[in-house]
């Protein structure tokens, strides 16, 4: 009796599992391409906001290299760097970077830098700053992040790269100075590094895979 019960239950459950798994695999197979395309579109949308589509001609999504540089990028893990080229001219580097010293932890950013060192644009990808205070770094809440567009960093001690309160050129937020400081520092750091290593970055092999490319705009 005990064996018949075991046999019956085991076989039925296994049958259900097998059918369910097969179904899932079939659906996954059917949707895989579309999902990949969606992810790519999402990444490209953000990239194109920073580097206009008309200014480059290569496949920006594929032309991506992974760089590990905690000093410049503020994070231990490898970060993708996208290279925009127009034919063989270097147009821009789009770097994922991190400000580790936000008010409530790390702030993840995307910064586009022209080889000349001019910042083409910047976006915050992810943060945990105080709602209503520090979250003005998001484009949805405030256009503060746009104030970096077309700015240049002149060396490490450029006095303009600070909040007004510290004598710099960028606004702080009412009630919050730590967050903008962290973002400004990170962009400044990243821009300097990208400018200095522009050639090396453009010539590095493209070695990103889909897993590391997610931009996760949240």
């Amino acid at each position: 009796m005990i064996f018949s019960s075991m046999k019956r239950n085991g076989i039925i459950l296994a049958a259900f599992a097998a059918v369910a798994t097969a179904l899932l695999i079939a659906v996954q197979w059917a949707t895989a391409d579309r999902i990949a395309a969606q992810q790519r579109n999402e990444v490209m949308r953000t990239l194109n906001e920073l580097v206009p589509r008309s200014t480059y001609s290569n496949d920006l999504y594929r032309d991506c290299t992974l760089v590990t540089n905690p000093d410049a990028l503020g994070i231990d893990s490898a970060q993708p760097v996208y290279r925009a080229r127009d034919n063989n001219n270097h147009v821009a580097l789009v770097v994922r970077t991190t400000a580790p010293d936000g008010y409530s932890g790390a702030i993840h950013l995307l910064v586009a830098i022209a080889p000349s060192g001019t910042i083409l644009g910047s976006r915050v990808l992810q943060h945990r700053e105080t709602p209503g205070l520090g979250d003005k770094i998001e484009l949805r809440k405030s256009d503060w992040i746009l104030s970096f567009t077309n700015q240049r960093v002149n060396g490490e001690n450029d006095p303009r790269w600070a909040v007004r309160r510290d004598g710099g050129a960028f606004d702080q937020f009412t009630g919050a100075t730590i967050t903008p400081r962290a973002v400004i520092n990170a962009i400044q750091r990243t821009a300097l590094w990208a400018q200095a290593n522009s050639n090396a970055l453009f010539t590095a092999p493209a070695n990103c895979d889909a897993a590391t490319q997610g931009v996760g705009n949240e």
Binding site: I2, S5, M6, N9, G10, L13, A14, A17, A20, T21
Partner: peptide, 14 residues
């Protein structure tokens, strides 16, 4: 998955 399910089914039947 089927194997796991089989195993758990056996345990539950027991």
């Amino acid at each position: 998955l089927a194997g796991l399910a089989l195993l758990f089914g056996l345990i539950l039947g027991f």
